[in-house]
Design a protein around this nucleic acid. Structure first.
Length: 490
DNA sequence: TCTGGGGTCCTAGGACCC
DNA sequence: TCTGGGGTCCTAGGACCC
C-alpha cells in the first residue's frame, strides 16, 4: 500500500506562529512588521509576520539583513518560548480530541490520523471537520490562525496545508494527488533543499511534473539509493509513512554562537564546560545517557568540523562530557577563531552511566547512595577518543578470590520510577541493590566475592539474566520511601 | 546580507570479526 | 597462503527540516 484510499491524514500548521503570538499579546504590534528571532549581530529570523514578509523577509534570514529591508517601525523581538508553548499545547489538545494518533512535528505543526480517530473520511466530512477545527483554534488561542491540509498521505496533507496559507483549509480527494503535485516547484517536496534543487536543475527539472519524467536509476545514481528512490516515489505521490505519536530522542546537544570569535583555549574550555552542563542536565532530566560525545566547531569562515568519541559506557555526567569534549577540541581545527561551539551526546539508551570499580574504602561500609560521591571523576580514564575501545572493561578475568565491589546496570524497566536503595537483585555476582534511579533504567550495585570476568558487567535489556524469573526480588517502588537506606546484604 | 539552535537521516570509508 | 564476503561499529561530513 502506498497511499490511503481516502483523505485521512490531516496536517495543521500555525500561521507565522511566533510573530502571531506577539501580535496577539501586544495589540500595538498588529498590522506592523514583526520579526522574532536573534536580534543581535549574528542573529537570524525565526519567524516574520506577514507584514514583514511583504518586504522579502523570511525565516533563517540574517536579522542584520532583514533590518535593511524593513521600514522604521518594525518590531524586533526575542522569542518567548513559554508563551508559544502554552498556545501550542492548546492546539495540540484540540488535535488530541480528534484522534489518538497525533504526531507533533514541532511547536507549530502536527499530523493527525483521522482514520485512527474513527472519522468519516469522505472529502465532504473531513472538510467540515477541518473547518470546525480551524474555528476552534482561533477561539482556543485567542485569535491565532492555522492552515489545515488533508490528503491521502503526509506528503499531500502537508503540501495542501501550505497551498492557501494563511487561515485556510484544503482537502485533496483520493485520485487528485498528481494534479495537485505536478505543477508545483520541486522544492515544495519535503527533502528537496537547495542542494537537491541545484542538481535537479542540471537535469532540466523544475517542477514535480518534470521530476516525474526522470528515470529512477538516474535519480539513484545522482542522489544515492535512499534519496534517489525517495524522490521517484514522491513525484508519484507514493507515500505510506505512518503518523507516529511519539519517538524517543536519539541525541541531545547544545550549541552557542559567540558575539565575537573566540581564540583562546581557556575561553573555549569555559564554553565547553557550560555546554556540557546544559547537555548533562537535559540527559539526566530525561533519565537517559549516551555513549558518543561530539564536539562541533564552526570557524571564522563558517567552515564546520565535528569530532566525536564513543566511550565504553553511556554518560550523563557534566564533568565526563566536558572532559571528553575538551580533548576532542585538541583534535579539531580552530585556527583563525571559533564562532560556534557545540557539544552533543548520542547513542542514547535506557542505560544509565556505570561507574567502573569503586574505591576500596567504600567497599566495606554502607553503600553510598550519592552517585556523585562514587564517581571516579578523573575523566582521563574511560575517554580515549583517538584509540577506540580502550578495553577498560571486562577483558581478563580478575582473581575470583579478591573481594571487589562493582556497579552493574541494566534496564529498561518500562514506565516505572525506581528509587535508590529500594530493590534487590540476585545473580551470580552476588546481591545488588538499586543505586542509580530514573524512569526506564536501573543501576544495580553489587558487592562481595566476584566470580565474574571483570570489575564491571553490563546487562542488556534482553539479557536472559534479567528475565523476571531471575529477578524475583523486585518490589513495588511505591512501597519504599525515597530515602530509605539500601537493604542489608545477606 | 552573512548566515541560530535544536534535531533527523544518509553516505562512505575503515576497522574488525566471523 | 591467498582470498572473500557479510555484518557491525565507528567517524566525519552533508543535506535537510522547523
Amino acid at each position: 500500500m502506498s497511499a490511503r484510499p481516502s483523505p485521512c491524514v490531516l496536517h495543521l500548521d500555525l500561521d507565522a506562529f511566533f510573530a502571531a503570538v506577539e501580535q496577539r499579546d501586544k495589540p500595538s504590534l498588529r498590522g506592523r512588521p514583526v520579526v522574532v528571532g536573534g536580534i543581535d549581530g549574528r542573529g537570524v529570523v525565526a519567524t516574520a509576520s506577514y507584514e514583514a514578509r511583504r518586504f522579502g523577509v523570511h525565516s533563517a534570514m540574517a536579522t542584520a539583513y532583514a533590518r535593511r529591508l524593513l521600514p522604521a517601525g518594525t518590531a524586533y523581538l526575542v522569542p518567548r518560548f513559554e508563551a508559544y508553548r502554552r498556545s501550542s499545547d492548546v492546539v495540540m489538545g484540540l488535535l488530541a480530541r480528534l484522534s489518538p494518533l497525533v504526531e507533533r512535528v514541532s511547536i507549530d505543526e502536527a499530523y493527525v490520523d483521522l482514520a485512527a480517530g474513527g472519522h468519516d473520511t469522505s472529502p465532504a466530512a473531513v472538510e467540515e471537520l477541518a473547518q470546525a477545527l480551524r474555528a476552534d483554534v482561533v477561539t482556543g488561542t485567542g485569535g491565532l490562525t492555522a492552515s489545515v491540509g488533508i490528503g491521502t498521505s503526509k506528503l499531500v496533507a502537508k503540501i495542501a496545508s501550505d497551498l492557501r496559507k494563511p487561515d485556510a483549509v484544503v482537502v485533496v480527494p483520493a485520485g487528485e494527488e498528481l494534479d495537485l503535485l505536478h505543477p508545483l516547484a520541486v522544492t515544495k517536496l519535503g527533502g528537496v533543499g537547495p542542494a537537491t534543487e541545484q542538481k535537479l536543475r542540471t537535469l532540466g527539472v523544475h517542477t514535480v511534473g518534470d521530476l516525474y519524467a526522470v528515470e529512477e536509476a538516474t535519480l539513484v545514481r545522482m542522489f544515492g539509493s535512499a534519496h534517489g528512490s525517495g524522490l521517484h516515489r514522491l513525484a508519484r505521490a507514493l507515500d505510506d509513512r505512518p503518523v507516529v505519536s511519539s519517538r524517543d530522542a536519539k541525541s541531545v546537544s547544545a550549541e552557542d554562537t559567540f558575539p565575537t570569535d573566540l581564540t583562546s583555549v581557556p575561553a573555549l574550555h569555559a564554553e565547553i564546560d557550560r555546554l556540557a552542563a546544559r547537555v548533562g542536565e537535559r540527559l539526566r532530566s530525561g533519565a537517559t545517557a549516551g555513549r558518543t560525545v561530539t564536539l562541533k566547531v564552526r570557524r571564522h569562515d563558517f567552515s564546520t568540523a565535528t569530532r566525536s568519541a564513543t566511550l565504553p559506557q553511556p554518560v550523563d555526567d557534566d564533568a565526563v562530557i566536558a572532559a571528553t569534549a575538551r580533548r576532542l577540541l585538541a583534535l579539531a581545527p580552530t585556527d583563525g577563531g571559533v564562532r560556534l561551539l557545540g557539544v552533543g551526546v548520542s547513542g542514547l539508551s535506557d542505560f544509565v552511566q556505570t561507574e567502573l570499580a569503586l574505591d576500596e574504602a567504600s567497599a566495606d561500609d554502607q553503600p553510598a547512595l550519592d552517585i556523585e560521591e562514587a564517581e571516579p571523576t578523573e575523566p582521563t580514564e574511560p575517554t580515549e577518543p583517538t584509540e577506540p575501545t580502550e578495553p577498560t572493561e571486562p577483558t581478563e578475568p580478575t582473581e575470583p578470590t579478591e573481594p571487589t565491589e562493582a556497579v552493574t546496570l541494566f534496564g529498561p524497566v518500562a514506565d516505572r520510577r525506581w528509587r535508590a536503595g529500594q530493590d534487590v537483585h540476585h545473580d551470580e555476582q552476588g546481591v545488588g541493590w538499586v543505586w542509580g534511579s530514573g524512569r526506564g533504567l536501573v543501576t544495580v550495585r553489587f558487592e562481595g566475592p566476584r566470580t565474574g570476568p571483570g570489575p564491571v558487567r553490563t546487562f542488556r535489556a534482553d539479557d536472559p539474566a534479567l528475565s523476571a524469573a531471575d529477578t524475583p526480588d523486585w518490589r513495588d517502588p511505591d512501597d519504599v520511601p525515597h530515602d530509605e537506606a539500601p537493604p542489608a546484604l545477606g
